[in-house]
């Protein structure tokens, strides 16, 4: 474990805490894409299939349980909680997220890490995570005003994978000396998708103005 990966995991955890904080304190999920949250449930379940078969460390197991548990809890809040579900921006959250699943699955069949079920699903999960934020970014462009917690959530979510890229560079030079095409390229694509959001987020933060994404 290196500091970049720990920072990445903590940033990822913090993004989920911020989102849960927003939903629980404001009893609202306005501006949050349910489709992105549903994709994350698929990402975590297909990535952590080895949760009960392979023990890496207490930290690893605990974090996997937290990520699966919180992502399911968020979907539950947005779909079933009697108050929160009324605040879901159903009309704006229109990205056809199910269209993202077949290409990622086909890509995982064509370029898996290994031809085993768990590794094909792991590769699928890596590819899917790279594009899972698209419905959320589209929804942000349609939101007239993005509240601070939602903006912070998306920023932290983008920042976590950027920190993972630093972790991969660090591990390449200090540990593995092996190129890991699948996570690296997916991670670069994933972080690149946040590029314009990062630009407008940092600009709004510097100018102390409301965050707005151009439509």
């Amino acid at each position: 474990m290196n500091i970049f990966r720990l920072a990445g995991d903590m940033t990822h955890l913090l993004s989920i805490v911020v989102l849960l904080l927003k939903i629980r304190t404001t009893k609202s999920c306005a501006g949050i894409s349910l489709k992105t949250q549903e994709l994350y449930v698929i990402v975590f379940i297909t990535r952590y299939l080895d949760l009960f078969t392979r023990y890496v460390s207490f930290y690893n197991t605990a974090m996997k349980l937290v990520f699966i548990g919180t992502s399911v809890a968020i979907v539950w809040y947005m779909r079933l909680h009697k108050v929160v579900k009324q605040t879901y921006s159903r009309d704006e959250d229109t990205f056809k997220h199910y269209l993202l699943i077949p290409p990622c699955f086909i890509l995982a069949l064509l370029i898996p890490l290994e031809f085993t079920v768990t590794e094909i699903l792991w590769s699928f999960s890596i590819y899917l995570e790279a594009v899972a934020i698209l419905p959320q970014l589209l929804l942000l462009q349609r939101s007239s005003n993005i509240d601070n917690l939602t903006g912070s959530y998306v920023f932290l979510l983008g920042a976590y994978r950027a920190l993972y890229i630093v972790n991969w560079v660090y591990r390449f030079f200090t540990e593995t000396h092996k190129i890991r095409w699948i996570p690296w390229i997916s991670g670069l694509v994933q972080t690149a998708l946040y590029a314009d959001f990062f630009y407008y987020y940092i600009k709004s933060w510097k100018n102390h103005e409301k965050l707005r994404l151009p439509a």
């Binding site: 890496v56 990520f67 996570p183």
Partner: peptide, 10 residues
């Protein structure tokens, strides 16, 4: 150690 066993990351 094949790469896949390297899934020590989240």
């Amino acid at each position: 150690e094949p790469e896949s066993k390297l899934h020590d990351e989240l």
